[in-house]
Nucleic acid binder design. Structure first.
Lengths: 215, 215
DNA sequence: TTTTAATCCAATGGTTTGAA
DNA sequence: ATTTAATCCAATGGTTTGAA
C-alpha cells in the first residue's frame, strides 16, 4: 500500500512534468519541491494538497501550487476510476454506477489517489463543465483572471456566468446539457448551477411577458 | 383530505367494475363488499389492503381479494405519480427523478393513494416485468397457476423462471432490458432478479467451457 | 401459513465546519 | 483571508420484522 502510493506520486509528478517538456529553467527547483510531495523532510505526512492557482492553459504551477490543467486532470482520473468500478460491478453482476458516487471516491482512495476527495471535486464541477462545454471560453477566462492576478475563488465564481449563458442558449435545461456530454454526464449537476439556470429561465419568461410576447 | 380519499376510493372501485362490464351476476354482492373499502361499518379504519389472488387476465377478484390486473394497474399508477413529480420538479428547477423513488411513494400517499407502498411494489416488480416483456407468457402462467389453485406466493416465485429465460436470450444484461423498456425503466432492478441473471450467465459460461468452446 | 406494511439500517448525496 | 478536507446530516434504497 505504501509502495503503491509512492509509485502513484511519481506518476503524478511525471504528468505535471510532461506539460513542461520544452521549458528547462527552474526545473531543478521544481523537482526539489515536488520530491517532498506526500511527506515532508521530517517524515511527517503532508497535511493537505497544494492549493490551486489560476494558470493559463498549458502552464504548470510553480512552487507549492497546483494549476488548473491539473485540476481538470483530476476529473479525468475520476472518470477512469468510475470506469474501473463499472467493469468490476458488471463482472460481479452488481448494480453499476453511472455517476461518480461515494463508492468511486472510496475506490480512488484505496487505489492510492488520496489527493482525490468528494468536497474538492464537487466544489469545482461547474468549472470543469465550462472547460468541457466551451474550452475556448474557459481558456480565455483563465488568461484574463491570471493576468488580473485574481485568486482561485474569484475565477471559480466567474465560471458561472459564461456557463449560464450557454445553458440559456440551449433552453435552460442543465440536466440535458450534462447528460448529453460524454465526460460531463458522470457528474451530478451542482445545486447552485441548477438554481442559477432556473432563475435565468424565470428572468427570460418575465422579460418576454413585459415585452408583450405572452399577452 | 378525507374528501380526496373518498373520491379516490370511488375511482378505484370504478376501475375494477369496468373490467366486469358484461358480467352481471353477483354484482350486488361485490358492490356491498366494496362499499366497505377504506373503513369498515363500525367506523374503524380498515387495517390493510385485501390480499392478491392469482386471477386470469381480465378476471376480477371476488370477495375481499384483489386480482393481478389490479396489481399491474398499481404499477401504472406509480408511473403516473412519477410523471407528476417530474413535472413539478422541472417546473421548480429541482432535481428530477427518473425512477420510482421514496419521494414518489410519499407523493402517492399524500395524493390519497394510501394503498400504494414501497415494500409491496418492490415485492412484485419482477412479476410486472414479465407482464411488460412477454404478456403472452405472463398470461399463460397466470392461467396455469390459477387452474392449479396455487397461491400468490407460488405464482410470484414462478415468474422468475420465464424472466431469466428472456434475459438469457438477450445476453444476460438485466439492466439493459429494464432500461430499454419505457414502462420498466422507471423501476429499480430487484436484487434477486439481478443475482439470478448473473448466475445464469456463469452457468452458461461454464457449460460452454466444458463443451470445449473456450478451450 | 400466507400476505401485508411498518420499521429499521447502512450507505448516500450533499453541505457545513473548522483546520491549515 | 483563502483554500482544503474531515465531519456531519437528513433522506435514500433496500430489507427485516412482526402484525393481520
Amino acid at each position: 500500500m505504501v509502495a503503491m502510493e509512492k509509485k502513484n506520486k511519481k506518476q503524478r509528478k511525471r504528468w505535471r512534468e510532461k506539460m513542461n517538456d520544452d521549458d528547462d529553467d527552474d526545473d531543478e527547483k521544481v523537482e526539489d519541491e515536488e520530491e517532498n510531495e506526500g511527506k515532508n523532510i521530517n517524515g511527517g505526512e503532508r497535511q493537505r494538497e497544494h492549493p490551486f492557482i489560476v494558470t493559463e492553459p498549458g502552464e504548470v504551477a510553480r512552487g507549492k501550487k497546483n494549476g488548473l490543467d491539473y485540476l481538470f486532470h483530476l476529473y479525468e482520473q475520476c472518470r477512469e476510476f468510475l470506469i474501473r468500478v463499472q467493469v468490476i460491478a458488471k463482472d460481479r453482476g452488481e448494480k453499476c454506477p453511472t455517476k461518480v458516487t461515494n463508492q468511486v471516491f472510496r475506490y480512488a482512495k484505496k487505489a492510492g489517489a488520496s489527493y482525490i476527495n468528494k468536497p474538492k471535486m464537487r466544489h469545482y464541477v461547474h468549472c470543469y463543465a465550462l472547460h468541457c462545454l466551451d474550452e475556448d471560453v474557459s481558456n480565455e477566462l483563465r488568461r484574463v483572471f491570471k493576468e488580473r492576478g485574481e485568486n482561485v475563488g474569484a475565477w471559480r465564481q466567474a465560471c458561472y456566468k459564461p456557463l449560464v449563458a450557454i445553458v440559456t442558449r440551449q433552453g435552460w435545461d442543465i440536466d440535458a446539457i450534462f447528460n448529453s456530454h460524454p465526460r460531463l454526464s458522470i457528474w451530478y449537476v451542482p445545486t447552485k448551477l441548477r438554481q442559477l439556470s432556473h432563475s435565468e429561465r424565470n428572468n427570460a419568461a418575465i422579460a418576454s411577458t413585459s415585452v408583450g410576447i405572452n399577452c
